[in-house]
Nucleic acid binder design. Structure first.
Lengths: 337, 337
DNA sequence: ACTGGTTGCGGAAACGTTTCCGAATCGTCG
DNA sequence: CGACGATTCGGAAACGTTTCCGCAACCAGT
């Protein structure tokens, strides 16, 4: 199947009648003699030589690889980041390694600790929970790390974040402006950082609009479509909202299904707002009004930060924040009179 | 930021008062003396040693990494494969590297040729076009390769495929059975392998149902939502189909938008069938009838095949075929009388 | 023509492991 | 009690590069 063993730099040297140092220099552009370079290149072609990435890595102490770790690549927000990050890394000659941790804290820690093995030059991490063990592991990472998401103030780590609390508030205010008064909230797990922040933002929004906080309008579940559907069913069986704010687009999609199944129309009877503004929002029916948390921007910023470190940037941890914005589509009414 | 240099096996050896060979043996379980192992483990903990993955790779000639190369991770079919493949690889201790080639043939070739650098132990490749250069590069790859997709009969490569031609035919037959007589087809690019096969299957289906082939019912475009919408607009401006078969779910989604915008109802006036049976199909409105090409199965099979090779399996190239199947949802009518 | 500075190249060390091989130790058996 | 096999460990080579160092050769300047 695969050829038994590829030629090494020694074979090239022999074929070209020069030393291995000269071969290396010729290939890495550290020689000025054109005749030398030509001979080496010819020999390379003749013996079919390709340098070993592993040996180069060992010598140069760089792998040319960067890892991206997140909960699940199936989540469109992360997907958007990956699609943004990969081309940027590639432009700089880095390969991308993917770690799906399945929201398992233990897995995330393992990824962080495995960095000491030095199989990558850097990491972009999207933790869904941040524990003390995370922070400890982030204290002195073996390679540069950029975290996408909320982090305690004191953490000295490059960080890209968004204000999802503010985003949730935007959603509520938009619904209020569009005439909704009984605004329900379908959240993900309450013990996650995004879950807490979105809930807080939802309450912020209610306060800002002068609406009562009514816990019977709040449901918790997972961040998936099915969870959204089930949560919406429970909600509708219990009470009668005129709007639903979902903690992400998947939940919103599930909720829209449940709402239609219950015979209510969108947006006439119940308006719906999602969060993350993924491609799902554009293509759903009706097209979903969604709070954009700038996933693509966050991906780009994180990649930029990491590349800067890889290019030797030193100095204190940087932090960038992407402002949320609302993309209004047809699942909500225009601001009513 | 990052600590200047991690301790090596030599530091451990010194701390434990033994030779580096003993350290290596103790850590890799090739020693029987428990006291030795204990001392080494203690020393490891004391100096904070973590083995260098690169050095191990150089010595063992294995990287513990596998690459997956496809057009675009944004495509739900590939996404489903990744989600299937990653856990399987991980179970066997392999890390996953992602190459998005952007449907660029040159890029795909580069990926294949870069395998000689041995930065991965194997590759799963989803080529969208198969050129002679692909075949040449596949002739004697530096590491085991599994191709997902159609391949010429004579190619001696492990291969997982599906019969998308048969799948397209299923779609047409289903539409016919549901009463459609003017069945349009919105395809992707005509010069891709999937494009050709689906077109052929569409025609097969028409023949099987005794319908005329009418080229005015066929549109070409890209494989994205926007392309699907535009193609459907052109189609509807020109003629009046009672069903649309789209070459993938994204196109179908775009087409459904265009159809609704044109004021036609789904499925009453125009039925729609997609292909790939992605999560989009379940969550769309109305839920989309779609031809499943078993993306997850194909991913799993490819991973299995590759792992078998990595575990030393030899022998001729294997081939597996996943049969297409139809998932009927609400964008089509039940078989009519 | 001799010297001083460049330049071009080869030898060898180093990166951090694994593993082969030989030496030393131990226990056991004749 | 001596010898022999088994076991355990240390030394050193090897994986395939890059790069430091030194040597020879060359050019120009006096």
């Amino acid at each position: 199947m695969a050829a038994s063993s590829r030629p090494t730099i020694h074979e090239v040297a022999k074929a070209a009648g020069v030393s291995i140092s000269s071969v290396s220099r010729a290939l890495n552009g550290n020689t000025s003699n054109p005749e030398m370079v030509a001979r080496v290149k010819a020999a390379v072609k003749q013996v079919g030589y390709v340098p070993s990435a592993v040996a180069q890595s060992l010598k140069t102490q760089q792998t040319g690889q960067v890892a991206f770790a997140m909960e699940d690549i199936g989540n469109a927000a992360y997907l958007a980041m990956v699609r943004e990050i990969q081309p940027l890394l590639r432009e700089d000659g880095y390969r991308l390694l993917l770690h799906a941790t399945g929201a398992d804290v233990q897995d995330e820690i393992e990824v962080l600790e495995s960095l000491a093995q030095k199989y990558v030059d850097g990491l972009i991490l999207c933790p869904i929970r941040v524990t003390d063990r995370h922070l400890a592991a982030l204290r002195s990472p073996a390679v540069p790390v950029v975290v996408i998401g909320q982090l305690p103030e004191e953490a000295d780590v490059d960080n890209v974040r968004t204000d999802s609390r503010q985003g949730a508030r935007l959603a509520v205010e938009h619904l209020y402006a569009a005439g909704a008064r009984r605004i329900a909230f379908i959240n993900g797990p309450a013990d996650t950082v995004p879950g807490r922040l979105r809930h807080a933002g939802y309450q912020d929004g209610l306060h800002a609009c002068g609406l009562e906080v009514d816990d019977s309008l709040v449901e918790f579940g997972g961040f998936q479509v099915s969870a959204g559907r089930e949560a919406a069913q429970r909600l509708l069986a219990r009470t009668q909202p005129d709007a639903v704010f979902a903690a992400n687009d998947l939940i919103a999609l599930g909720a829209m299904h449940a709402i239609r199944s219950a015979g209510r129309s969108i947006p006439e009877e119940i308006q719906v707002v999602g969060m993350d503004d993924t491609t799902l929002a554009e293509t759903s029916f009706p097209p979903l009004t969604s709070v954009s948390l700038g996933s693509r921007d966050r991906g780009r910023l994180a990649a930029d930060m990491l590349l800067a470190r890889l290019h030797g940037e030193t100095g204190p941890a940087r932090r960038a924040t992407v402002a949320p914005s609302l993309t209004v589509r047809e699942s909500t009414r225009e601001a009513a009179a």
